[in-house]
Design a protein around this nucleic acid. Structure first.
Length: 182
DNA sequence: TTAACGTTTTCTTATATAGCCTGATACA
DNA sequence: TGTATCAGGCTATATAAGAAAACGTTAA
């Protein structure tokens, strides 16, 4: 069982934008545009809500969502806001897709990371405790990366959907039980 | 050797995780 | 002044975007 911590998606409204003008027109509680620091416009539709980064090209990224529902709802509300400002057509097709999902899971047991790194195979594992306390595992059959910690906590990232993250976690769990059976 | 151009890297954001380091504060 | 505790920042991972800087290569 894994839980979504962060979901990231991207889309394209298909029109070139004057970012400074969009920032001035947006009727939302939080916007930030500082081209000296970064060239993207940051938008939050609600305080402390998901972050939308909008670019001059019309492409945008939404991050900071804790569910797919929140991600798609944020996308819908953002496009509606732009449509109300006549920046885009309300029926526009943005090709919005989920790009990355970060999930957490628990193995329900402590893990000897040295033993695990040897068992999983050094070609698919990175473990340098002086540099980072977690073991980084790249399973060959799953498009995801897992960070495994000695207390059994796991972070799954790089997957485009929660099913892939769940499958990668289950694969790790099976491996751990086989390799570290008492 | 220098200029011009092309390619690569860095930056920024969100998020979980845990260990280490540094700085600030509190107390003896 | 010395020690203890706490908070915050850094380390690493993935991903999108695009500007800018830092490279590397080639030609004059």
């Amino acid at each position: 069982m894994v839980e979504i911590a962060n979901a990231v998606g991207s889309g394209d409204v298909g029109v070139e934008l004057d970012i400074a003008e969009v920032e001035a027109d947006l009727p939302v509680p939080y916007t930030e545009y500082d081209p000296e620091n970064y060239h993207g416009l940051y938008v939050r539709l609600v305080e402390d809500g998901p972050l939308i980064t909008l670019y001059r090209s019309g492409k945008y990224i939404i991050s900071g969502c804790s569910s797919f529902e929140e991600l798609h709802e944020t996308n819908r509300a953002f496009l509606q806001t732009l449509a109300e400002l006549d920046i885009i057509n309300s029926s526009i097709e943005t090709g919005f897709t989920v790009q990355n999902v970060v999930c957490t899971g628990e193995l329900q047991r402590s893990v000897n990371l040295n033993t695990l790194s040897i068992g999983l195979g050094l070609e698919v594992v990175e473990y340098e405790p002086e540099q980072f306390p977690g073991l980084i595992y790249r399973p060959p059959d799953f498009p995801a990366v897992l960070l495994v910690f000695a207390n059994g906590n796991v972070v799954i990232t790089g997957a485009a959907d929660v099913e892939t993250a769940e499958e990668a976690f289950n694969h790790l769990q099976t491996k751990v039980e086989g390799l570290l059976a008492d």
